[in-house]
Design a protein around this nucleic acid. Sequence first.
RNA 1: GGUGAGGUGCCUGAGUGGCCGAAAGGAACGGUUUGCUAAACCGUCGUACGGGUAACACUGUACCGAGGGUUCGAAUCCCUCCCUCACCGCCA
Length: 423
Amino acid sequence: MLQVQFIRQNKALVLERLGVKQFKEPGIVDEVLALDDQRKKLTLEYDETQAKVNAASKEIGKLMASGDKAAAEARKQEVASLKQALGPIDEALRSTEKLLHDTLVKLPNLPGPNVPVGKTPEENVEVRGGGAKPSLAADAVPHWDLAKKYDLIDFELGNKITGSGFPVYKNKGARLQRALVSYFLDFNTANGYTEMLPPYVVNEASAYGTGQLPDKEGQMYFVNEDSLYLIPTAEVPVTNIYRDEILKESDLPVRMTAYTPCFRREAGSYGKDVRGLNRLHQFEKVEVVQLVRPDQSYTVLEEMVAHVERLIQSLGLPYRILNLCGGDMGFTSAQTYDFEVYSAAQDKWLEVSSVSNFESYQTNRMKIRYKDEQGKNQLVHSLNGSSLALPRIVACLLENNQTPGGILLPAVLHPYFGGDRIA
RNA sequence: GGUGAGGUGCCUGAGUGGCCGAAAGGAACGGUUUGCUAAACCGUCGUACGGGUAACACUGUACCGAGGGUUCGAAUCCCUCCCUCACCGCCA
């Protein structure tokens, strides 16, 4: 969430940036400021009264020790009436703090300086791209047909075991998953990311920390018995590794990568682009996360984009990078680049990575700070990106590389896959 | 799942009603010393929210797992919950 102090000092900027994000309730900004004023006023009142209570209590102790019982009793009376006054103040303060917090979390992150203005995905700006679209034979087929032809993925079997959106990978299809995960992790660690293997379920505090709660609980599977959420992305457990920590400046940047399965309910998206691997309830993804000094986060964002770009290039897939416009960005992001790869047989661009700078929006919730040169605690900036999500990569690899002699895999995968093709 | 013990600052660990935001040691950081390293010595060494200041200084409140309660006063007593450890059971 945003910092109240920042909103107070930069109100005009906040309103202007919220406009870029197409935020519809700018009145919340004034609500926040009014509630914060109220909070300060009540805090002062509470502290001053409590200070009197504390002082009187100390005196009572001394009076008792010196045997002056009558004086002690008189002071006790005084404390009693002070405490009576304190009750309502305390109550008002608590409810104000809660209301302030509940109001504050309704404000999305502010778009950064390089975010294009726009409302819809059509207004996203293509930054660059690469890789030539393949020219497929006339009888080329989409990946779900190829998956069947080579016995790689069984969607119906997943229906039987679990439900739609939970495919079963088989044979070379399963092997390809393993190869891709290993390759992606090796690629990331070779570039300075530390490999992590986090839990696949998280508690409420973690889901809150990265911004899945309070708004998006409907997108996560929930284990009622233990009040735990299945992770929708490794971002959640990995970023929360540093929740409530104060880092040394020399600890930064923190760079982590993790493979996890991802679970998404995808409520409300039935029937829309859900064919084959395009949209699943469970899928594999390798994620990269960084915690950095605030002045470096936009430089790091570009580095992470370049990193993911090299990874996609190494797979030989046609891709493009989009700088998301204000209206299409996520709630918690300050800037996001989406990576799409071209799925030739479907003639579609599929999103395979999303690289975002969250500035201090997540870390303010998680209280991830570092001690700066002056010894003051400052929020770090958090960033993350997929590197990469598997299913759509697989769809493209299958579709784009289909030949009469089988599906030809990119050279970087040969050692991991144990072969150069699926035939 | 059962039984027992316990949760204190970066770590170890004292503290069982006021003198405790918290001893001591270690780590870390700064400095002195040193040819360098080590050692030794000196110093610093929690967080949040307020008041205050140009900024410091200074100052108030809260926090000893979480939430309640008793009391003039709680790290310390009581209740509930959570977690950790040990042993037993079960099990990949």
